[in-house]
Nucleic acid binder design. Structure first.
Length: 399
DNA sequence: TCTGGGGTCCTAGGACCC
DNA sequence: TCTGGGGTCCTAGGACCC
């Protein structure tokens, strides 16, 4: 259970609880359960972000369901005007997507997150909280338990409580030097300064309403544990293909690749549970066949006969913008060397986008799979909702 | 039987180079 | 052979985020 409605939370279904543990509750109260549906979420997110990009000077997409809006140049607006502006945004997003939102406005990202947190909690805010004075900022800081501050996780939360710091305000009273010493160095120092109202985190604006990642990964747990090299190769090749698609979709190339295998963390085997290997490629690429070849080499280093693996993943780091890779003087642009490669990948992406994911795949990803059977690494998505907005076969039918 | 899938930034040590 | 002050890259891991 990763995302729960207010009603589900009220039943006591915990974040991260595995389905089998809450099965009785679910049956008793007829709780509706859905597998994750990334295609639908991604498309709805894109609709919201595109709208936001059209109404504010700067937009940073922070995650699939959160964004920072830069309001620079709007400081002169009075409090009611800013509140009205935020309300208008909420109404528009709701009209277009039926997605409810809350907005926190403050001089730093950390304070804006804190304001947003309070706006969600207190219905009197009507979804918007503006912290436009030092007095209101300190009032807000006093309302929030320290572990709910953005950047304070479980470890620091416990540590701060043990030191008698209970609220965000207590933390904001600490000195930068203290935070540097006790909260992970420069990270903690910035956190405290942000709480005090001094911006330390820039806005990383995205101009086109999409998010350009610095690393791209595709990782999955298998439907059942796998041990044979060929099965794992199939999985790793399929994951590499998906990650390479994501890479091309954001117009990037990679020169660093990691492959990892994971064993069952809940099983009888003691740690380590994951084994990983990394390679630096001689030149940046987004070509699926090149990347699958590299993935295979990494897997050959990792794989041990007799071990049962439950999970695998492929991660691309060292991303470079396509067309402007940082090459040394003596290297050729990859696309100049192999002009047909880019065209082939474009065709591959077009086919898969038009006729469905995995319509065309690299042979390595399917070689080990007998005809007519699902790939052994696929998870069981038993309760998937439909991809209403991104798949022809799942369109709403009205009749 | 069943236990998610992504990301970010920072630190530190060792190899290697000038 | 020892001394010294840089720098980069690679690798691994920790803490946090959604």
């Amino acid at each position: 259970m990763v995302s729960r409605s207010a009603e589900a939370k009220a039943l006591g279904i915990k974040m991260g609880a595995p389905l089998f543990q809450v099965r009785p509750l679910i049956e008793q109260h007829q709780v509706q359960v859905f597998s994750s549906n990334y295609a639908l979420y991604g498309d709805m997110s894109y609709r919201v972000m595109s709208y936001l990009a059209s109404v504010v000077p700067e937009l940073e997409i922070y995650s699939i369901d959160e964004a920072f809006l830069g309001l620079h140049g709007m400081e002169r607006y009075t409090k009611p005007a800013l509140n009205d502006f935020a309300q208008e945004i909420r109404e528009q997003v709701n009209q277009r997507t039926h997605i409810p939102t809350c907005i926190g406005i403050a001089p730093t990202k950390t304070l804006a997150k804190l304001a947003n947190h309070l706006a969600k909690q207190d219905t009197a805010c009507k979804g918007v909280l503006l912290l436009d004075s030092v007095e209101r900022q300190w009032w807000a800081l006093g309302q929030v338990p320290v572990e709910e501050v953005w950047g304070v996780g479980r470890q620091y939360g416990q540590k701060l409580r043990a030191m008698g710091l209970d609220t965000a305000a207590d933390l904001a009273c600490c000195s930068e030097a203290w935070a540097r010493k006790h909260m992970g160095g420069v990270v903690g120092a910035r956190l405290v300064r942000e709480l005090q109202g001094t911006p330390c985190h820039q806005l990383h604006a995205s101009e086109d309403g999409t998010l350009a990642r610095k690393s791209i990964a595709h990782t999955r747990s298998f439907g059942r544990p796998l041990s044979k090299f060929d099965d794992l190769l199939g999985a790793v090749a399929a994951f590499t293909s998906r990650a390479a698609e994501k890479l091309r979709a954001q117009g990037s190339e990679t020169y660093m690749m990691t492959v990892f295998l994971g064993q069952n963390r809940f099983g009888p085997t003691p740690p380590p549970y994951t084994y990983s290997a990394q390679i630096t490629l001689p030149t940046s690429t987004s070509n699926t066949t090149d990347l699958v070849r590299a993935a295979r080499a990494l897997l050959e280093k990792l794989w041990q006969p007799g071990l049962l693996y439950k999970k695998a993943g492929v991660i691309f780091d060292g991303l470079e913008g396509h067309g402007q890779p940082q090459l040394s003087l003596f290297e050729q642009l990859p696309e100049v060397q192999r002009p047909q490669s880019a065209a082939l990948m474009r065709k591959l992406d077009q086919l898969n986008s038009r006729f469905g994911q995995n319509c065309v795949q690299v042979a390595t990803a399917v070689a080990a799979v007998p005809k007519g059977t699902p790939a052994p690494w696929l998870g069981q998505k038993r309760q998937c909702s439909l991809a209403r907005t991104t798949s022809w076969k799942d369109l709403w039918e009205i009749g």
